[in-house]
């Protein structure tokens, strides 16, 4: 069974003369346990797709089915929130500045009706490599990497099946990025998660995903396996251009 299926998704922003199409007729499916990447440059609409799935964007048309549940507008059922969670790009903006780690995690669990919160928080913090000593800290007492670990712990709190990752490491230093990518890889194999990851960095997508869609101007240019990417076995010139400039910047 597919974890996510999208058919003919269009997203419009604005209205009247200002109406712009941010995503144009996008279709894809993500199998259970798969890691699917969305790559493209800024403004290509890759993050918009994640936000549509999460129910954070109004005004889209098409069909999206997540874990057997058909999605409508911005409304999402309680069961959806239990199955799908998201990690945001900027760990400095994704944690409430006045709430301790404890408060963030316990509220996430309360909302899902989870009991024995105390024990679970300790386990979650260990799972993301922070340890119980971080439980009562405020975000400003944490580094960027630690904040992102808290954000991942929050996303894991309802024990979801699918994680939407919106450039989860692009605001972090490379050494911290490596830690977070390793953590995400570990969590996936331990918990059998399905990932949909948005990134502008082909190296990051290549590390974590098995398959990726290349986006440009709101459309899918090409969907291809990471192995094919590595071999530069691509059909579209834009994909080739993107791959070459990415490789050239490392060489």
């Amino acid at each position: 069974m597919n974890a996510i299926e999208a058919r003919g998704v269009d997203v419009y922003f604005g209205s009247g003369a200002e109406l712009t199409r941010a995503v144009n007729d996008v279709s894809f499916e993500v199998a259970q346990g798969e890691s699917f990447g969305l790559v493209g440059e800024s403004g290509s609409g890759k993050s918009t797709i994640l936000r549509v799935i999460a129910g954070l964007v109004p005004g889209w048309t098409g069909e999206i089915t997540v874990a057997g549940e058909s999605l409508q507008d911005e409304k999402r059922s309680r069961a959806f929130h239990k199955k799908v969670q998201m990690v945001f790009q900027d760990p400095y903006a994704s944690l409430h500045p006045r709430q301790t780690v404890d408060r963030v995690l316990s509220e996430a669990m309360e909302l899902q009706g989870i009991t024995d919160i105390n024990r679970r928080i300790t386990r979650l913090l260990n799972d993301v490599g922070l340890g119980a000593g971080f439980r009562f800290r405020y975000p400003h007492q944490l580094s960027g990497g630690q904040r992102q670990r808290v954000a991942i712990a929050r996303a894991l709190a309802p024990e979801p099946e699918i994680l939407l990752l919106d450039e989860p490491t692009s605001a972090l230093d490379v050494s911290v990025q490596a830690e977070i990518l390793n953590l995400l890889a570990d969590l996936r194999s331990e918990l059998g998660l399905t990932y949909v990851m948005v990134s502008h960095d082909l190296g990051v997508v290549g590390h974590l995903c098995g398959r990726a869609a290349v986006m440009k101007d709101g459309e899918f240019v090409e969907v291809l396996g990471i192995d094919a990417m590595r071999r530069l076995d691509v059909t579209q010139p834009y994909t080739r251009h993107l791959l070459e400039s990415s490789i050239r910047s490392i060489r």
Binding site: S175, E179, A185, G203, G206
Partner: peptide
């Protein structure tokens, strides 16, 4: 060396990235 090795490289995949 740690900075150099922490970068994920599309052409040379590794199961785990080196952590500084």
């Amino acid at each position: 060396l740690g900075l150099l090795n922490a970068v994920p490289d599309l052409e040379h995949p590794r199961a785990r990235l080196d952590v500084l």
